[in-house]
Design a protein around this nucleic acid. Structure first.
Length: 763
DNA sequence: GTTCTAGAAC
DNA sequence: GTTCTAGAAC
C-alpha cells in the first residue's frame, strides 16, 4: 500500500477533486465584509460566488432564504461561496453552516474591527448596498454589536479566522486569494483564541504565557505558512487587537484582561525567585595537584550536602572549563544520587572568569584554586583569575593574608575597579589551597590519601564557610533590593549610603578581619558582616534571577532516581539484556517501556556524561550519525512488516530521562500510553528535534537548538497532520485515528519523515 | 518517566 | 453523575 503523505501524490479517488468552501463572514456593517469578498472574488483562481443579502434581490436587499438558495446552487456547481451578511449571532449562522457536508468545508471569517471604525465607515458611505447611512448608523452598529456572538468550531466550522485590525484582514485576504481550486487550509482557530474557553482550555493556558503584547498584527498569509505560523497569529492577535476587542464586546474585554496577565506573571516570575548570591568554585586539587577524581567528587558532594541547610538562599556551582570534564560528570551523578537540590547546587561548563559575560551566570563570589604563596602565575584557574582580576586582586589579597596552609581559605573583597567586578559582577574571590598529590609541586602528600582526603574536606569546609559569611551580608542586601523590585519597579535614584547598590562608593572600604577560614575555626567567619553594601549590583534586576532560574532548568537539572533507568542500561547493558533488542560498543536499542505509538524504540548512546541534547557537541557528530543510521535500520525493518507506518526520528529538547536517547516513533500515535498533553506535544511540536536537523546543527554550529519546553509542552492539542485543534486528549485521539491529511510540508522535507519506499512500476 | 487523585469541566 | 486535566509524589 502506498502512503499518501505528499500533497502531490494523491490517490486516484481524490485526484483533481476540488473541495468547495463556504465562507461565512461575520461582522458589523462597515466592518469590510463586502470589500473582503470583492477582493477575493476578483483575484482568486478558485471560482467564488458572493452571496450578499443586501443586493440579492436584483440589486436590492432580500431575505435569508434567498441567500440560502443562492448559496446552495452555487455550491452545487462546485463553486465556493461567501455569505456576505452580518451573521453576528449563532442563530443567524446556523442555516448556512448546515449547507456544509463532508465534501464541503465551512469556514468563518470574523471581521472584528473597532466599533468606532465600523460606525465611521457606515456613516461616510454613500454607495453601499446596505443603505445604512447617516446618523442612524451608529445606533444600528451598536445595537448589532450588543448581540454579537463570536463563532465557535463547535457550531460546525472547520476553520475560523479572526481579524481584529487591518493587517489581520490583509493576511486573511492573502490566504483566501492564494487558495487555488485544489488547495485546502488547515483547520482550527486562527488569529484569536477560542471565544469560549470551555472548548479549548489549552489555548487559553498557552496564551496566558505569551510575553510582550505586540500590535504588529499577523503577517502570515501564505497557505504553506499558515499551519506553521498559526500559533504566532494567535499570539499576536490575542494581545495585538486588545483595543478593538475591548471596545467591541464584553466577552472580548474579558479576554483582554487575560492577555495582559503575562506581564504580571513575568514580574512575579522574576521577583518570586528567592535565590541569593552564588559561589562558583573550581574543583580543588584535581587538576595540577593530581588528586584522584573519584575521591574528590565524593568529597565535593559530601561537603555540598553538609552545607545545603546552611546556605540559606545562596547557591553553589561547580565550574569546569571543559565539557565532558570527568569531575563534573562524577559530581553530577553523585549529587543526583543524593538528591541534592539542583536549584541550590549545580555544575557549569565555562570560564570561571567569564561566567556572566559568556555564560549568563551571575556569581558574586568565585573561588580560586590558589597556591600557598597566594601569588599570581602558575597555570590553570589561579593564573586565569589573577589575570582577569587585574593587579588589584594581588594587592587586596596581601591585605588579608600572606600565605595559605593546605585545607584553608581566605576571603578577599575585590576592588570595584577590577574588571572581574565591573564586567562579571564578582565581589569577592576566595582563595583555597587543597592537598597536593603532584610530586613536582610543594607539600606533596606522596600518595597519602587518608591525609589528602582530610585536607580536601577541610579546604571545602573553609571555602563554603567563607562564602556563607559573604553571602549572609549579600543576602541581606539582596532582600532589600528584592523588596524594592517587588513594590516599585521604577525605582527612584535617591538612596542612602547603606543601599546595596552603591557598590562603587563603598566597595573599596576595607573590612579589617581575620579572613583566613579554617575548618575548625568557624567563628572566624564573622568578619564580613560589616560588608553590607559591597555586593549587590548583580541582584538588582529581577532579570538576572530569571536568567539563572532558566539556567537551572536547562543546564543543571539533577536527575531523580526514576530518571536514571536509561543511564543504568547504557552503563551496564549486559544486566538488562532481556529488555534490549540490539547491543553494540557505543549504542543499545530498546523498546520504549511505555510506547506512545504502535512502534516506539529508543536508540541509546552508551557514552557516559552525554545525558541530553544540550550536552551534544561537534565531537559527538559521528555518534549522532550512527544513532540515526541504527534508527533508520529499525524503521526499515518495521516498514517491511507494515508499510502503512510512517516514522520520525528525533530527540526531546529537554528529556525526562537521563542518557541521550533517540526516539524512533511511528506517526500513528496509537497507544494507550499516550495519555496527556505533554506526551502529545513532546512528539508533535518543535520540542521534538528531528535527528536530521540535530545532525545538521551540530555539524554547522557545534551545538543543537533546544526549543523552549514549557510553552511547547503546554500548547493546545493539534493534529500532527492537518493541524486542527482539539479540546482534549480523547477527542484528539479519535481524530488522529481517522485523519488522513497529508503531513505538513516541513515534515516531508529533508527526510524528517520515513515512510515505506513508494512502489515503483517495475514488476 | 508513571501513578494517584482533587477538583475542574462537562 | 462522569470525564478529564494537572500537580504532587515517587
Amino acid at each position: 500500500m502506498e502512503m499518501d503523505i505528499d500533497n502531490t501524490c494523491k490517490t486516484k479517488g481524490e485526484e483533481e477533486k476540488a473541495k468547495p468552501i463556504i465562507v461565512i463572514l461575520v461582522g458589523a456593517p462597515g466592518s469590510g465584509k463586502s470589500t473582503f469578498c470583492e477582493h477575493v472574488v476578483r483575484s482568486s483562481s478558485r471560482p467564488w460566488v458572493r452571496v450578499c443579502q443586501d443586493t440579492i434581490n436584483n440589486g436590492k436587499s432580500g431575505t435569508k432564504v434567498q441567500c440560502l438558495m443562492n448559496a446552495a446552487s452555487a455550491l452545487k456547481e462546485g463553486k465556493s461561496v461567501f455569505i456576505d451578511r452580518c451573521n453576528l449571532d449563532r442563530e443567524q449562522r446556523v442555516d448556512f453552516v448546515k449547507l456544509g457536508s463532508p465534501q464541503l468545508e465551512v469556514h468563518a471569517v470574523v471581521l472584528d474591527l473597532a466599533a468606532k471604525l465600523c460606525i465611521s465607515r457606515s456613516v461616510k458611505r454613500t454607495g453601499h448596498e446596505g443603505n445604512l447611512q447617516g446618523g442612524k448608523a451608529a445606533a444600528v452598529v451598536n445595537r448589532m454589536l450588543q448581540k454579537k456572538e463570536l463563532p465557535k468550531l463547535s457550531e460546525g466550522f472547520s476553520r475560523i479566522t479572526f481579524c481584529q485590525n487591518e493587517s489581520d484582514v490583509q493576511a486573511a485576504l492573502d490566504t483566501y486569494i492564494g487558495l487555488g481550486s485544489l488547495d485546502t487550509l488547515p483547520h482550527g482557530y486562527f488569529g484569536q483564541k477560542n471565544p469560549n474557553a470551555k472548548v479549548q482550555v489549552g489555548i487559553m493556558k498557552f496564551l496566558k504565557k505569551v510575553e510582550a503584547p505586540s500590535n504588529a498584527g499577523s503577517s502570515s498569509s501564505s497557505i504553506q505558512d499558515a499551519a506553521a505560523s498559526q500559533i504566532i497569529e494567535e499570539k499576536n492577535s490575542c494581545c495585538g487587537g486588545k483595543e478593538t476587542a475591548s471596545s467591541l464586546s464584553h466577552t472580548a474585554g474579558e479576554e483582554v484582561k487575560r492577555c495582559q496577565e503575562p506581564r504580571v506573571d513575568s514580574v512575579n516570575l522574576n521577583g518570586s525567585s528567592s535565590y541569593g548570591p552564588i559561589l562558583a568554585f573550581p574543583s580543588i586539587s584535581t587538576a595540577d595537584f593530581q588528586f584522584n577524581n573519584e575521591k574528590a567528587s565524593d568529597i565535593i558532594v559530601e561537603k555540598v550536602e553538609e552545607f545545603m541547610d546552611k546556605l540559606g538562599n545562596s547557591r553553589l556551582v561547580l565550574v569546569d572549563l571543559t565539557r565532558g570534564s570527568k569531575i563534573l560528570s562524577l559530581v553530577r551523578a553523585k549529587a543526583a544520587q543524593k538528591n541534592i537540590n539542583p536549584k541550590k547546587f549545580f555544575t557549569f561548563v565555562g570560564d570561571i572568569t567569564r561566567l556572566y559575560s559568556e555564560g549568563g551566570l551571575r556569581c558574586t563570589v568565585i573561588a580560586n584554586a590558589a597556591n600557598w604563596r597566594l601569588k599570581p602565575g602558575g597555570g590553570g584557574v589561579n593564573a586565569a583569575i589573577f589575570n582577569a582580576a587585574g593587579p588589584g586582586l594581588e594587592v587586596a589579597t596581601k591585605e588579608q593574608a600572606k600565605s595559605l596552609v593546605p585545607g584553608s581559605a581566605v576571603v578577599v573583597p575585590l576592588p570595584s575597579t577590577s574588571p572581574l567586578c565591573s564586567r562579571e559582577g564578582v565581589t569577592h574571590v576566595i582563595h583555597v589551597l587543597g592537598p597536593n598529590m603532584n610530586p613536582h609541586r610543594p607539600n606533596c602528600l606522596d600518595g597519602d590519601y587518608v591525609k589528602g582526603c582530610q585536607i580536601l574536606q577541610k579546604a571545602y569546609t573553609s571555602l563554603f564557610e567563607g562564602f556563607i559569611s559573604v553571602a549572609m551580608s549579600q543576602a541581606k542586601s539582596f532582600q532589600g533590593s528584592y523588596e524594592e523590585i517587588k513594590s516599585e519597579p521604577s525605582r527612584s535614584q535617591d538612596h542612602s549610603g547603606d543601599d546595596p547598590r552603591n557598590y562603587s562608593s563603598t566597595g573599596d572600604q576595607k573590612i579589617k578581619r581575620d579572613g583566613v577560614h579554617e575548618h575548625d575555626i568557624s567563628k572566624k567567619c564573622k568578619g564580613s558582616q560589616n560588608e553590607v553594601g559591597t555586593s549587590i549590583n548583580s541582584f538588582r534586576a529581577g532579570k538576572v534571577n530569571a536568567e539563572n532560574d532558566k539556567l537551572d532548568a536547562s543546564m543543571s537539572k539533577a536527575w531523580g532516581s526514576w530518571a536514571q533507568a536509561l543511564y543504568h542500561i547504557a552503563m551496564q547493558p549486559e544486566r538488562h539484556r532481556d529488555s534490549l533488542i540490539e547491543i553494540s560498543d557505543d549504542i543499545v536499542v530498546l523498546n520504549d517501556l511505555y510506547p506512545k505509538a504502535q512502534k516506539h524504540l529508543l536508540v541509546l548512546t552508551r557514552c557516559d556524561g552525554l545525558d541530553r541534547l544540550a550536552d551534544v557537541r561537534a565531537e559527538h557528530l559521528q555518534l549522532l550519525k550512527k544513532m540515526h543510521t541504527v534508527g533508520i535500520k529499525w524503521a526499515e525493518k518495521f516498514l517491511d512488516e507494515d508499510a502503512s507506518l510512517v516514522f520520525r526520528l528525533g530527540y526531546h529538547s529537554v528529556p525526562s530521562m537521563r542518557q541521550l536517547h533517540l526516539h524512533l516513533i511511528s506517526q500513528d500515535f496509537n497507544s494507550k500510553h499516550l495519555k496527556n498533553k505533554k506526551h502529545w506535544n513532546s512528539f508533535t511540536t518543535a520540542f521534538f528535534r528531528d535527528s536530521v536537523d540535530v545532525i545538521e546543527e551540530i555539524s554547522n554550529q557545534g551545538k543543537a537548538t533546544l526549543k523552549d519546553n514549557e510553552s511547547l509542552l503546554s500548547m493546545e492539542l493539534r493534529c500532527h497532520r492537518c493541524r486542527s485543534a482539539h479540546p482534549n486528549i480523547p477527542r484528539l485521539k479519535s481524530h488522529i485515528s481517522n485523519c488522513r491529511s497529508p503531513f505538513p510540508t516541513a515534515l516531508l522535507q529533508n527526510g524528517r519523515l520515513v515512510p515505506a519506499p513508494s512502489k515503483t512500476s517495475n514488476p
